[in-house]
Amino acid sequence: MVLYTGLFLNTIIEDTPIYENYLPILVLMIVATLIPLAILVITNILGPQKPSERKLSVYESGMPPVGDAHPKFSVKFYIIGMLFILFDIEIVFMYPWAVIYKQWISTSIFILVEGLVFVGILLVGYIYAWKKGALDWE
């Protein structure tokens, strides 16, 4: 089962089934999970355990804590979050376009026009958000 042959690559990748390429990443995932867990367990065993009331209280520069720790925060953060999702998805859509661009542009100009139309639509949304003041921080 050949799933990919390298475009420029003269090394090894041809003819390897996909699970063989992803299996080491799965193993790495398990190892990368175990490392922080091991650190957490070791520090829990090695360190002393002498809790006291002062130690366990909220740190607020040595003063008794005032008010709620979760105050209302600016609506700007929500707007930035939503704009991020929209723009990030649009940028992800541009990745496959960018990968095939080099092959396609040699035969027809159509892919360039397509890309420009997409960027144009993105720009309209971007300018709208800018004019609405969603990008302003004061």
Binding site: T43, L46, G47, K55, L56, S57, V58, A69
Partner: peptide, 12 residues
């Protein structure tokens, strides 16, 4: 030093 310090989990 980091390893031998107390691992405090505050109560809040």
């Amino acid at each position: 030093k980091f390893l031998s310090k107390e691992d405090v989990v505050p109560h809040h």
